[in-house]
Simulated scan of single mutants.
Amino acid sequence: MPEAILVLEDGRRFRGEAYGAIGETFGEAVFATAMTGYQETLTDPSYHRQVVVMTAPHVGNTGWNDEDDESSRIWVAGYVVRDPARLASNWRARRSLDDELKAQGIVGISGIDTRALTRHLRDKGAMRVGISSEGTDPEALLAKVLEQPSMAGANLVDDVTTDHPYVVPAEGEKLFTVAAVDLGIKAMTPQRMAQRGIEVHVLPASSSLDDIRATGADGVFFSNGPGDPAAAEHSVQLLQQVLTAGMPYFGICFGNQIFGRALGLGTYKLPFGHRGVNQPVMDLGTRKVEITSQNHGFAVDAPVGDDLDTPYGTARVSHIGLNDHVVEGLELRKDGKLIAFSVQYHPEAAAGPHDAAYLFDRFVDLLKDN
């Protein structure tokens, strides 16, 4: 395999072999701690403009199938693995991971010490990075890395949202209609709602309140997505209109951050984010701990344990991460009644775990109650 090089913006460099497409790529270096579900990770639009470092050493064992994609394409800017599988072995596999990366033009690198790289990112924080298998001059690549934009302040929603509305029909008896604003939605999310009798109208991020009402929605959902929530002004304003109209609301990941900003709270960039399928979260209402799937680099800045007066009702933090006490969920009540809630993690959980699937049932209960 051709030689490849990875260079971080602080000058740290790693040499390895080309993996996937030959070329040059740039993005924000982040690490993901999942040991499974790499296909879902790669096709998650929340990873747009990010170079993903896999902490699991052996990647690609189960190849690539045609069923597990979370969107229509691979979104990561680059891919970093230690030991790529030499042979894919799974009854659903149609091709190898390497073949799919090449087919979609995703530049990667293998054969490097991903543990050392992960420890560096954990200590120094996520940062800009470049990978090249075309030229291996580290100084030349570093100069290009330093020209790349930061993730802070990046509005990436328009890059990943659908360009046209579409409907995911309810399975079995239709109970409710939900307007899902696509900020980078994963395919499994409307499927989880459809399994519970919800007809999901997926709308572009540029949609208006009139567009939402035109679906006949009983409730509104905002999805996960990439970028800085502080730059997504239209989404915040739209959600404020939804809350003013008194429509039930559920948000996931970026939808949690947008909810926080709509309530008047701030958001901030985490040092290295939470990415993996092994993140412990406590539901402060039930005191139960869930092992969750996460992918976020920003978080809501809100006090834990305090009721917050907002123009729409009383808000409070509903979930916290047990590793670092990051806000992992919010809820909004009016006259003591739940009218909106969100979580920072992924209850649709493809490829798992499924500890948090109850949140979709909670959304159904919210729709019933309102």
Rank of each mutant, 00 (worst) to 15 (best):
V327W: 08
T244V: 03
Q241G: 06
L209E: 02
V202S: 03
V202E: 02
D66N: 13
I5H: 05
D309I: 01
A194D: 03
F341A: 06
H58Q: 10
A88L: 04
V80A: 04
Q195I: 03
R333D: 00
N224W: 00
Q104H: 10
W64D: 00
H325K: 12
I112D: 09
M127Q: 15
M188Q: 12
V167T: 13
L243Q: 00
I74W: 06
D218V: 02
S133F: 11
R192I: 00
G266F: 06
H164N: 04
R15W: 05
R13V: 03
A231I: 04
A85I: 09
G251K: 06
D182I: 09
A103F: 03
A29E: 12
V304Y: 06
P57N: 06
E9V: 02
G105A: 03
R86N: 08
G184F: 01
H234E: 05
G305A: 03
L97T: 05
G111L: 08
A93T: 12
G60N: 10
V129W: 11
H164G: 03
R192V: 02
A245C: 05
R128C: 08
V200M: 14
G264Y: 07
P149I: 05
G227N: 02
S89G: 13
G60D: 09
V7P: 05
L366R: 13
D158Y: 10
N90R: 14
